[in-house]
Design a protein around this nucleic acid. Structure first.
Length: 792
DNA sequence: CAGTGAGCGAGCTTCCGCTTGACTT
């Protein structure tokens, strides 16, 4: 048995370090925190200086008992968790839980997994820093108190099972407020003037820096240009340069993988995790942009040998986020000389991104020569401007260019255009001039990645929680990630060519969104409730404020229980009084009176989601109800749209003795017939479907379904082999069974073989861990006879 | 992919941060 037991947080790290240390050391991992507050409400004893009750969760019991055994046998235990608040607390929990002795325990820290760094750490052990531990306890206790007192208020005042917390509630707030900014936004049109001069190779574009608010002004400008002379008024050439971005942190990796690879933040993290475990990259949950000396040398060498030493530039980056704890290096390839890796497509592409970004961060800047030509218009006082840019030296751009969030609506501005040789005084020939109507754009909706960026800027959340937080707000139903179709919008273009002005109207699609975060009604209602009653907690700067206090605790300048007491007293009082006095929040809004009968039309959130109600609850005649449709929100729906909802579902005719009704569901308009659903094509207006049209749609769908059938069985007409979107599958009654890849020709499968495959299917498809079982399970057993089992 | 929406009451839900797996698509 080894004399020394060294404990780190991550098993992959343990493996690497074990290789550095030889056989005197056993290196093990704690797999993160090994203890947490007990799950019940009495985890914190408020009256007793916020004393905490901890427990080892079930899934950590085995790790703890193994570590305990090894610790007992070892002569010395080295606690090597990360050097930050959480890491220090992990060391203390280990010390406490494993019953370690002070005389045979040492605490060490390092920021990079290199042999010299670790040997240096072992030569410089210290003891556990209890100030840092206290800061973590304050953080943990505060989050528990906020989360577990606020959430029950929501259960009472809004809806059961909701949640609120220091981090998630601000994330929701950002999205709700952004949506309102967008709703409030009024697009303003203006005209942009672009001129095209010269012919063929000599052709180049110039633009008027000013824009015209009125079409008449733009038209006047073109008129004035009809007979104008154009000449070069001035030429200015100056060098410009561009520098590379810092190597990746968790947040910048998520942003760039989202922009360049289209990954969700959780996808990025799981792919990165694989790369890390395979030893291809350093740790992926980090807020540091720092590279180790070993890494810097390796990068220098790789750049010089692959591109030449003129491409190398030593750079040191400083972190921008105030909240950074920098326990790790930046995310970088483990070996810079490994340009590509083995793995699946996603792993290869993400590695490529990481490699390029890290290499580029140590490369020289790109150099350009930017030429600005001002063009005199003889009939006007304004000048046109043409800009050309020529790259003189590519530098880091040889490998990597960071993209940005702004869509390039106004691209083709000619930033990278090349101007022909020009001289001051030179006369120019106008080929064409256009005045194009352009609209100002509302603020952009958040993507998962841009929300992470914003949270990081506000110092809210940590690298390990960005992805889970994004999932939480979606799982709670506060936020949805969706695509939305845009709307058609007209714009005008005036074109001056051959001394004549032509006017035309064009259309563009505007407001289309892909994978953007939208608030839901419940998200908006919860947000408004929290702002009304708990402004301090959902304030954007709340976290920054408490972080400052945590820092003071970490430096021994403040007592943690005192800080928590100062926070808790007013907070708890507020919770109590809110429970007493606040009204239930339902997001109710009156839309007006029904045009036919004057009844009140209102919207609010009900048990099954947002709905419209016509009439009052205590009216003699019962009110009429209708659910809102996808994309409609309580706070923006109009009276007209609300009344539309009552026109469907509508009977359109009879077919095979059964009614056909048309309605609009979550996936768009559909026809319902004999308990089956047939979606309506986009070109058919659901309000005006004829009986004939409906029958055609039903027969069409049946024909298409029949074409998908590969094989049927005499034994049971409900069993079929079908061609699906992802390949052949067996429809076994209500169950869809995927056919394993090994079976090349599904045609040869017998009924018994199909039955065997169906029986082998896992019974329940639930993936969430255990908890969500009781209610849905009980519900599912009863009506299972009908057609319930629908895959998600 | 229907229909529903009042109120009662039991028993449940919930936080943030540190780690992986064990799952399905």
């Amino acid at each position: 048995m080894a004399k020394n037991l060294l404990i780190v947080e991550s098993p992959a790290k343990a493996k690497t370090i074990e290789g550095y240390l030889g056989k005197d050391f056993t290196v093990k991992s704690s797999y993160g925190h090994i203890r947490d507050l007990i799950k019940s409400e009495d985890a914190i004893d408020i009256g007793n200086n916020f004393a905490q009750k901890y427990e080892v969760p079930a899934d950590k019991k085995q790790v703890v008992s193994e570590l305990k055994k090894l610790a007992k046998e070892a002569e010395m235990v080295w606690l090597a968790s990360d050097e930050d608040r959480e890491g220090e607390a992990i060391s203390w929990h280990l010390y406490d839980t494993l019953d370690l002795k002070e005389s045979k325990t040492k605490r060490i820290v390092f920021h990079e997994i290199t042999k010299p760094a670790i040997l240096r750490a072992i030569d410089n052990p210290r003891t556990i820093n209890y100030n840092l531990v206290n800061a973590q306890q304050a953080r943990r206790v505060l989050d528990r108190l906020v989360g577990f007192e606020l959430s029950p208020v929501l259960w009472k005042k809004v809806k059961p099972s909701l949640s609120a917390g220091r981090v998630q509630s601000v994330a929701v707030r950002l999205i709700v407020e952004r949506e309102r900014e967008i709703n409030k936004f009024k697009a303003e049109a203006s005209f942009r003037i672009v001129a095209l001069f010269g012919k063929g190779r000599e052709a180049f574009r110039a633009e008027l820096p000013e824009r015209f608010a009125q079409q008449e002004q733009a038209e006047q400008f073109l008129k004035d240009c009809t007979e104008a002379l154009f000449s070069i008024k001035s030429l200015e050439t100056r060098p410009t340069k561009r520098s590379p971005a810092a190597p990746f942190t968790t947040s910048t990796l998520q942003q760039e993988a989202s922009r360049k690879l289209g990954f969700s933040v959780s996808r990025t993290m799981s792919v990165a995790q694989k790369l890390y475990e395979s030893g291809f990259i350093t740790y992926m949950r980090t807020d540091s942009v720092n590279l180790s000396d070993v890494a810097l040398n390796a990068a220098a060498q790789e750049i010089s040998s692959a591109y030449g030493s003129q491409y190398y530039q030593h750079r040191k980056y400083k972190t921008k986020s105030a909240n950074a704890q920098e326990a790790h290096e930046a995310i970088r390839p483990t070996y810079f000389n490994q340009h590509t890796i083995d793995g699946d497509n996603a792993e290869k592409r993400l590695y490529d991104l990481i490699w390029k970004r890290a290499i580029a961060s140590q490369m020289s800047e790109a150099q350009f020569e930017k030429t600005t030509a001002k063009i005199d218009v003889s009939t006007r006082k304004e000048d046109l401007v043409a800009i050309g840019e020529v790259m003189k030296f590519d530098g880091f751009l040889k490998v990597y260019l960071e993209s940005n969030d702004d869509e390039d609506d106004n691209a083709q501005d000619g930033d990278n255009a090349i101007l022909p040789p020009l001289q001051v005084g030179q006369q120019l020939t106008l080929q064409e001039m256009t005045a194009t109507e352009r609209y100002s754009r509302p603020p952009a909706r958040y993507t998962e990645a841009s929300l992470v960026k914003k949270l990081e800027e506000l110092g809210i959340g940590r690298p390990s929680t960005y992805a889970p937080t994004i999932s939480t707000v979606q799982n709670r139903g506060y936020v949805v990630k969706e695509d939305r179709e845009g709307k058609q919008r007209n714009y005008h273009v005036l074109t001056l060519k051959d001394k004549a002005i032509r006017q035309e109207q064009k259309t563009e699609n505007t407001g289309a969104e892909r994978s953007k975060l939208f608030p839901t009604d419940i998200g908006a209602v919860v947000n408004d409730f929290l702002i009304q009653h708990f402004e301090g907690i959902v304030d954007y700067h709340f976290t920054a404020g408490v972080e400052k206090e945590f820092d003071e605790i970490a430096q021994g300048m403040k007592e943690w229980t005192e800080m928590i007491r100062n926070f808790y007293q007013p907070f708890h009082q507020n919770v109590e009084s809110t429970i007493q006095t606040a009204d239930k929040a339902r997001g109710e809004r009156e839309l007006g009176a029904h045009p036919d009968n004057g009844k009140k039309v209102s919207v609010r959130i009900g048990r099954y989601g947002p709905f419209v109600q016509i009439g009052e609850n205590d009216d003699e005649e019962k009110p009429a109800y209708a659910s809102l449709r996808a994309g409609q929100m309580l706070e923006t729906i109009t009276l007209e749209d609300a009344l539309e909802l009552f026109k469907l579902p509508k009977k359109v005719g009879v077919f095979e003795d059964k009614d056909m009704t048309v309605a609009i569901g979550k996936f768009g308009p559909y026809i319902r017939h004999n308990n089956s659903f047939y979606s309506l094509g986009k070109d058919i207006d659901p309000m005006n479907v004829t009986e004939q049209q409906a029958i055609v749609i039903i027969e069409d769908k049946r024909k298409k379904d029949a074409e998908k059938v590969i094989k049927t069985f005499a034994e049971d007409p409900d069993v079929k082999i079908l061609n699906g979107r992802w390949g052949p599958y067996i429809e076994f009654g209500k169950l869809n069974v995927k056919i394993p890849k090994e079976i090349k020709d599904p045609q040869v499968l017998s009924y018994d073989e199909c039955k065997a495959l169906a029986d082998a299917m896992p019974k329940d498809g639930k993936k969430s861990p255990g908890k969500t079982s009781t209610k849905p399970a009980a519900k599912a057993t009863k009506p299972a006879a009908k057609k319930t089992t629908k895959k998600k």
